[in-house]
Write a protein that binds this DNA or RNA. Structure first.
Lengths: 208, 208
DNA sequence: CCGGGGTGTTACCCCGGGTAACATGGTCGG
DNA sequence: CCGACCATGTTACCCGGGGTAACACCCCGG
């Protein structure tokens, strides 16, 4: 059995363990699931990051391709945005553990910077950036806005999607609407609530 | 010297180490900086999470109070939003290491769920939610929208702010504008770019 | 004088990432 | 047929970090 198929088997095992135990599964656990011991994993993947990376790249491709396709859909812009949001939420809904792996940067990653966006999400952010650059007329600030928005939108959907998955406050469709409304400037368009322009805001109980 | 002042000293030491080495500083390092050894830290804070929590609560109060104040400022809504954004960005700009501590959930935190938002940010999200509920007329969906938007906006600013800190693509003021524009529906308002409705999008090189 | 509660220490446990060194088994050139 | 080679696998270990047990000191009040 040459290298590649073996790698696939090991990745499958790792996948199973992470589905079961979450992204913090130990190398030992993964090796055990594969019916072997640690050094083999290390021979194939170098270190834990390598394994995780290989694993995420597998799943990322699916989500990323889906998002990319949604971004290229020939719809009205608002519909396209909703479609992208729905695609992402559907993706994370399908397999939460995998989703965590993709979206939450691995623990032992003190290197360089503490980027808020995991690699998979950074790729999505770039995809959004590109789509905005290609599809929306933003004038001279185009590049800056597209980049900032790409990250911003991704972070927004990450945080909101996380919360939605956790608490399930509403259907997916409704959530898509809520986020699309936010992106659509409903915050700007809505009227003031008259009574509460300056509420008291008395103390800082500092409750955790 | 009773407990409290000592605690403060230890927190100061921890603060220094984290400023210097980032949030992954070890307990040994912190103890060394304080001129003592590990068990004392554990006596005071229970475990690492306790230490980190105490530390974040300190800094959180500042950032949180600033954001809260900005949210209550008697300005036009758009100006208030810009003010909040600027407050946050200024805060994270001032002390990046501390900021990472606040915004990036601690590694070894397998407990419960993999929330995308660290506690400090969750508090900010709640603050935004409350502000939206109190200040904006969103009709029947008010509560859901406010909650989703609170998380979403926080995540957006987290991700975008992270990127801005990392790459410094523009001044803070400009960044504030970019984000406010996004929240203000400029994505909806801008015209289509005519030429590129369906670009080729040839291959998937899967570059990392 | 003595006991208790604070400060501090050394030395250890456990676990997880990562590695060194050795064993096994098939395949290929002589 | 035999040795060389290479990948697969093993056991046993190192290291560093979180966390703890057990012991030592010091000071203060009864």
């Amino acid at each position: 059995m040459s290298r590649e198929p073996r790698r696939e088997q090991l990745l499958n095992a790792a996948d199973r363990v992470i589905q079961r135990e979450g992204p913090s599964a130990s190398m030992n656990a993964i090796a055990a699931e594969a019916g072997i011991t640690k050094p083999i994993l290390y021979r194939h993947f170098g270190d834990r990051t390598g394994l995780i990376r290989a694993l995420t790249e597998r799943h990322t491709s699916g989500l990323l391709a889906a998002v990319r396709a949604a971004l290229a859909e020939p719809l009205e812009r608002r519909d396209r945005v909703e479609h992208v949001l729905d695609t992402y939420l559907a993706g994370i809904e399908a397999r939460p553990q995998v989703y965590r792996l993709l979206t939450h940067p691995e623990p032992g990653d003190p290197s360089g910077a503490g980027n808020a966006l995991a690699p998979a999400l950074r790729q999505i952010a770039e995809e959004i950036t590109r789509a905005v650059q290609n599809q929306v007329d933003l004038g001279a600030d185009r590049d800056l806005l597209a980049e900032a928005w790409g990250r911003g939108i991704t972070g927004m959907v990450l945080a909101a999607g996380d919360w939605w998955l956790e608490t399930r406050p509403c259907t997916r469709t409704r959530m898509v609407q809520a986020l699309a409304d936010l992106l659509w400037g409903r915050l700007a368009a809505a009227a003031d609530l008259p009574t509460a322009i300056l509420p008291p805001t008395p103390a800082e109980p500092n409750g955790d």
